[in-house]
Structures are given as structure tokens and as C-alpha cells.
Computed example of a mutant assay.
Amino acid sequence: MTGQRARECFTRARIARLATLDDTGRPHLVPAVFALTGDTLVFAVDHKPKRTAHLKRLANIRAHPEVCLLVDGYDEDWDRLWWARADGTGAVLPPAERAAVSAHYVDLLTRKYRQYADRSPDGPVVEIQVARWSGWYAT
């Protein structure tokens, strides 16, 4: 799969898996809804219940900004299997920047996910500059 095709798969995907590293180098994997603009992937902390306000994914990105996101398509017909990956550098946007930059990103998320129509994300926003798109498909 070409990088361009991998990016196109991300454009259509609804959910990704976000991989980060903690301070000890241990991987941490969580699902994430996201929006894509150019070669920038964004996600935001939303109102869904969480165990803590101090999310490990945010701490990990602050400590080790290298991240990876994966989307995939599974089918019982294994000739239709595929996955696409985005490797990049993430940043948790600081409050001073949130007013301008994050508002645009939250708007992108709200347009993509109808679940945000009544309550858009109001938590930290993460911006990921994708350096490499890659992927695979069975046929």
C-alpha cells in the first residue's frame, strides 16, 4: 500500500488505535476518534467517562512525542484485509494556543462525529504531525 493510499484509508476510518510510550518505554494503546487535515491528525479529550483527569496518553505524549496510530479493516474474506498506519510527532496543545488552533480542530471532530453535535470536546487537544504513512492490503 502506498503512503497516499494509507492516508486515504485514514480519511475514511472512524476509529484508530493510538500507541504511545510511557516513561519506562512500555507501550500504551488506546482507541481514539480523530480528524485528519492535510498530514495532521487530531483528537481531543471529550466528556466520555474516564477513570482520571490525568490521562496516561497525554502524559506519554508530553514525555515521548513519538506516536503511532493504526486503522484497519477486517473481513471474514481474508482477501479484503487491510491496515494503515500513521507515524508522527504529537503535541498536547497548551491552553494559550487552544483558543485559536484547537477550536478549528474541535470543529473538524464535531463535523466528523455526530455524537459531538450536542456536546463538543472541551478537554485537551492533541495535534499529531504525520511523518510517514504506510499500510498493507491482502490483494
Rank of each mutant, 00 (worst) to 15 (best):
4 Q>M: 07
5 R>G: 08
9 C>I: 09
10 F>T: 01
11 T>G: 13
13 A>K: 01
15 I>P: 08
16 A>L: 06
18 L>P: 03
18 L>Q: 03
19 A>I: 10
21 L>F: 11
22 D>R: 01
23 D>I: 10
27 P>H: 09
29 L>G: 13
32 A>R: 07
34 F>N: 05
34 F>V: 04
37 T>N: 14
39 D>Y: 08
40 T>C: 09
40 T>R: 05
41 L>F: 07
43 F>A: 04
45 V>C: 09
46 D>S: 12
47 H>W: 13
47 H>V: 11
47 H>I: 10
49 P>G: 05
54 H>T: 14
54 H>E: 15
57 R>M: 10
58 L>V: 01
64 H>R: 12
67 V>A: 00
71 V>Q: 03
72 D>H: 01
73 G>D: 10
74 Y>D: 15
81 L>E: 05
81 L>H: 09
82 W>G: 06
86 A>Q: 02
92 V>E: 00
98 R>F: 02
99 A>H: 07
99 A>Y: 03
101 V>A: 08
103 A>I: 00
104 H>I: 03
105 Y>T: 01
105 Y>S: 05
108 L>Q: 04
110 T>I: 01
110 T>V: 08
110 T>L: 09
113 Y>M: 09
115 Q>D: 12
116 Y>R: 03
117 A>H: 14
122 D>S: 14
123 G>S: 05
125 V>K: 02
126 V>S: 04
129 Q>L: 14
134 S>P: 11
136 W>A: 03
138 A>E: 11
138 A>N: 12
138 A>Q: 12
138 A>D: 09
139 T>K: 13
